[in-house]
Amino acid sequence: MNQQRRMAGWTVKTLVGCWAVLGALTAQAAGFSVGRVDIEFADGGWKELSLPDQEVAFGGDKSGALGVESKLYLRGAPDGDDQILVIVGAHSEGMGGGRAARMTYSPQCRSDEQNYREGNEGFRESFAQCLTVTPPYYSEGVFKALAPEVLALQASGVVSARRPVYTVWSRHAISTGSFVDVRVFVISPIGVDKAAVEDPLPKGVLPEHVVWGRQLKDAVKSSVYSLSGRLVVPPIRLKSPASGAAGGGG
């Protein structure tokens, strides 16, 4: 009888642990938040996974470190054509960061031969804004550079880093220290209604991703300046993968 009770107790504890993990992964969209940011996705089916908290050094006239909270949002099958990974990072201590001093930035957001970028440049600027759009690169190299936390999750089977991915990344930071950073990784291209882009694009960078990225950039900026921190992620509509798409360097 005692043995049966012990086995029953072990089973209950195991089930509780499993449900806790599943609950973290299947949180409803209404409960999605990172730091001071409330996140809204256009579609359902997203899963949420907390990432280790970090700190980044203040810049400008303010000393100390800024608390950062990050979460990973997933949709689609790991390594499938429909896999979407979205990492959202934000200042975890609310709007402000002290009125006596201000952070300044020296952004260098400009395109190069491989990647498209648009944002600001300068020295001791009051804000830093940058949108980065890349061609498909082998995901292991991309995650190693931009999202090492994702590589650590491969063993769990939740994510996969075996296929080339496109990256759309937007970040906006202001003088109070508040910022929002959104990194989107997709295997299949994102589709938009109109994909006309006047700027010359590096090889492999899709005009659709620049158009969609500009929508994301506007949403990120709005979230930073909003008292509520509300972040409305533009709809992510995937197209069929480009036939024969090969990963670039990374």
Rank of each mutant, 00 (worst) to 15 (best):
P148C: 07
S70I: 02
R214G: 03
S175Q: 12
A145C: 03
V133W: 05
A8L: 09
V150T: 01
G59L: 04
V192L: 08
L85G: 00
S188Q: 11
L151D: 00
D218N: 07
R102S: 09
E140L: 12
G157L: 08
S223I: 03
R102T: 13
W10D: 04
K62I: 09
F179K: 00
M103K: 03
A195W: 06
D61R: 10
R102A: 13
A195E: 14
D38N: 15
L22C: 15
R6P: 00
G94I: 08
L51W: 04
G64T: 09
V142D: 01
Y166D: 02
V56K: 09
P235Q: 06
D199Y: 03
S92Q: 14
G31Q: 09
V88W: 04
N115Y: 10
R102G: 01
E208R: 07
Y116E: 01
S111W: 04
D53K: 14
P189M: 12
Y138P: 02
R6Y: 12
A152P: 02
D79A: 15
D79K: 09
A155T: 06
K71F: 06
R5Y: 07
R183Q: 15
S92C: 07
G177K: 11
S106V: 06
F123Q: 07
Y105R: 08
E208F: 03
V232L: 10
L66W: 00
K47E: 10
D38L: 08
L51K: 02
Q4F: 09
L216I: 14
S243W: 01
T134F: 04
Q108D: 14
S243D: 12
V133S: 02
P136F: 07
S33A: 15
K47V: 05
S178A: 14
V56E: 12
C130L: 10
A195D: 11
L153R: 02
F123D: 07
Q4P: 01
R5T: 05
E208V: 04
R75I: 13
G177R: 07
G60Y: 09
G67R: 10
A145D: 13
H209E: 05
S243P: 03
I174V: 15
L131G: 01
R124Q: 15
I190S: 00
V150C: 04
T132H: 04
R124N: 14
M103C: 11
P189S: 12
A65F: 10
R171S: 14
C109K: 13
A246T: 04
D38E: 15
R162Q: 04
G157Q: 08
V197P: 00
S106H: 06
D81Y: 10
A152C: 07
S92I: 05
E40W: 06
S228Q: 10
A42N: 07
V197S: 03
G9D: 10
K47I: 09
S70E: 13
G119M: 12
G23K: 09
D81C: 03
E140Q: 15
S126K: 08
Y73S: 05
G249N: 13
D181Q: 09
Y105K: 04
A8M: 14
V224E: 05
Y138S: 02
S170N: 07
Q154L: 09
F185L: 01
I174L: 06
V158R: 04
L51T: 01
Q83T: 15
V88G: 00
S226F: 05
V12Y: 05
I39Q: 05
E140R: 08
M103T: 00
S70H: 05
K217M: 14
R171Y: 11
Q3S: 10
F179Y: 14
R36H: 12
